[in-house]
Computed example of a mutant assay.
Amino acid sequence: MTVRELRFDVDAVDAVDAVVLDIEGTTSATGFVVDVLYPYSRARFGALLAERGDDPRVARALAQVRELTGEPDADAVRIEKTLNLWLDEDRKATPLKTLQGIIWSEGFARGDLVSHFYDDVVPRLRAWHAAGVRLYVYSSGSVAAQRAWFTNSPDGDLTPLVSGLYDTENAGPKQEPESYRRIAESTGVEPARLLFLSDRPGELDAARAAGWRTVGVRRPGEPYFEQGVGDHAQAGTFDEITVITSGSST
């Protein structure tokens, strides 16, 4: 076996086969999501529910909203009010994220939206990918929203860098260790060889409880910056994260 090494500024995260990325506060500014994407979806919920309630994805999300609120007879107007309330609370409800994902995907496709990445992120993702590190995304945003986000970046389509996308529907809640166990099983990567990057201590705790390696990303201005990342290793940018991965000799 040979060892390929990407060496930057801080201690290495040794023997990592895959990096799993959070988006908000980690690869991208939370402010962009809150100030640009949230208002974009809020303005379009009503039309989506009124015009496309028979779409299977929309219909499933509507049923989930009714179940979560305990209002089986809630009409489109009532559901729109619930979605807006959840948006105000920044609640990570799966049907909210599903409907946002539909709206955002269409907005990206029309050219209304272009995603945001911190300047240090894309070069590092390209370097890790080139070195044989598999990249995955795990976000509270739906898989559809993630795909649109990575397809429509300022640096072009980044989806060829990503091996898989996970959200609260196909993996589970981000602060539950079982969700990380599901992802490990899905990727086929041993938990100890998975590295999770996030700005949220509760998510980092859950990943570590599932046997993963963790690095907390602390960026000034982000909501969790002052709180910190507990006793997890931390980095201010992706440039500070060293990844060493084993590969077959050639």
Rank of each mutant, 00 (worst) to 15 (best):
D119F: 13
D120M: 11
D120T: 08
D120G: 11
V121I: 13
V121E: 08
R124Q: 15
L125S: 03
L125R: 03
R126G: 12
A127C: 11
A127R: 14
W128M: 15
H129Q: 10
A130V: 04
A130D: 14
A130W: 09
G132H: 13
G132R: 13
G132N: 11
G132T: 11
V133I: 15
R134Q: 10
R134N: 02
L135S: 03
V137Q: 08
S139H: 01
S140P: 01
S140C: 08
G141N: 02
S142N: 03
V143T: 06
V143R: 03
V143L: 02
A144N: 10
A144R: 13
A144G: 11
A145K: 00
A145H: 01
A145G: 02
Q146W: 07
W149I: 09
F150E: 00
F150N: 00
F150H: 02
T151H: 08
T151V: 02
T151Y: 07
N152E: 09
S153C: 07
P154D: 01
P154W: 02
P154L: 07
P154N: 05
D155V: 02
G156C: 05
G156F: 06
D157Y: 08
D157F: 11
T159I: 10
P160S: 06
P160E: 01
L161H: 06
L161Y: 09
V162Q: 09
S163P: 03
S163K: 03
S163A: 15
S163H: 10
G164W: 01
Y166K: 03
Y166S: 00
D167W: 03
D167S: 06
D167N: 05
T168R: 13
T168P: 05
E169M: 10
P173E: 12
P173G: 12
P173V: 06
K174E: 02
Q175Y: 06
Q175F: 12
E176P: 02
E178W: 11
S179Q: 01
R181E: 12
R181A: 04
R182W: 10
R182L: 09
R182S: 06
I183S: 04
I183T: 08
I183K: 00
E185M: 07
E185F: 08
T187R: 07
P191T: 05
A192N: 14
A192I: 05
A192P: 01
R193N: 12
R193M: 09
L195T: 04
L195D: 07
F196E: 01
L197R: 03
L197E: 05
S198H: 07
D199E: 09
D199L: 06
R200V: 13
R200A: 14
R200T: 14
R200H: 15
G202A: 08
E203G: 07
E203L: 07
E203Y: 07
L204S: 09
L204A: 02
D205N: 15
D205L: 14
A207Y: 08
R208T: 14
R208Q: 14
A209E: 15
A209R: 15
A209N: 13
A210L: 12
W212C: 11
R213D: 13
R213I: 12
G216V: 08
R218M: 14
R219H: 10
R219N: 10
P220C: 13
G221R: 15
E222F: 13
